[in-house]
């Protein structure tokens, strides 16, 4: 992982407060656990029917019946629980899920999220993403600031099919921490070495800049 990405993941890990029930999306969000102390009190949820996700295991130590929603061979910790898919999403929809960290193709300045379909190119289905994005108490996005072609992912409006409307509260990118407010995007922190003109250039919507010194991560 690039240095900027590692710092983004480390910064995003501070979203997780003691006592929370948290679902981490596949990919970058899963990596935030590496930045939590081993004894940090948090309950990680996996859509396929597990609360209390333990460390990922090497193949020779893995249990063939114990995976996370991304297919990684994980383990249990003292107090873990297994349950079926209906119970798993009852937890998500009923308000018991405090936080979800998700990836994104596009995020709009009103908090709309698109992360499941690129018509004509990528449409494998949303799995549990729609319910996570629509019902977690707090929805946070972790993403590179631009796509692989350098196009902004933070936009005035999403162009791709939506996952959920108006639900994203904050974005952690490799360039900045950005909040979604009633007035649109607002800069909270800048990644070290990123200038304001660079950030504006890479952002596809207006972004409010705080007065005074801007904290870095």
């Amino acid at each position: 992982m690039s240095d900027a990405r590692s710092r983004m993941v480390a910064r995003a890990a501070r979203e997780i407060a003691p006592g929370m029930v948290v679902n981490l999306g596949i990919g970058l969000p899963t990596k935030v656990v590496n930045y939590l102390p081993a004894d940090f009190p948090v309950c990680l949820h996996s859509e396929n029917g597990l609360t209390g996700i333990g460390p990922t295991l090497p193949y020779d130590k893995a249990d063939r019946n114990l995976i996370d929603a991304g297919g990684a061979y994980v383990s249990t910790i003292p107090g873990s629980a297994f349950f079926d898919s209906a119970v798993s999403f009852a937890l998500v929809r009923s308000g018991r899920l405090d936080l979800t960290l998700l990836g994104a193709f596009e995020v709009a300045q009103n908090g709309d999220l698109a992360n499941w379909k690129i018509p004509g190119k990528f449409s494998p289905g949303a799995g549990g993403a729609i319910e996570l994005a629509q019902k977690a108490r707090r929805v946070v996005v972790m993403t590179t600031h631009c796509d692989r072609k350098g196009n902004p992912k933070l936009l005035e409006a999403c162009t791709l099919p939506l996952t959920a409307k108006g639900r994203v509260a904050r974005i952690y990118s490799d360039m900045a921490v950005v909040d979604v407010t009633l007035e649109g995007f607002a800069l909270i922190e800048l990644a070290e070495g990123v200038s304001l003109p660079e950030l504006r250039e890479a952002t596809g919507a207006p972004i409010a800049i705080p007065a005074g010194d801007i904290p870095t991560f």
């Binding site: 859509e47 079926d84 898919s85 209906a86 798993s88 999403f89 009852a90 998500v92 929809r93 949303a126 799995g127 549990g128 729609i130 319910e131 629509q134 019902k135």
Partner: peptide, 23 residues
């Protein structure tokens, strides 16, 4: 949606006709 597929099947298994959801 994953949890809605689960609930549709659960409803089928419980002898119900449908579920209502905003998902």
């Amino acid at each position: 949606a994953q949890g809605i597929l689960a609930e549709r099947i659960r409803a089928g298994g419980a002898g119900l006709g449908a579920i209502l959801t905003d998902i």
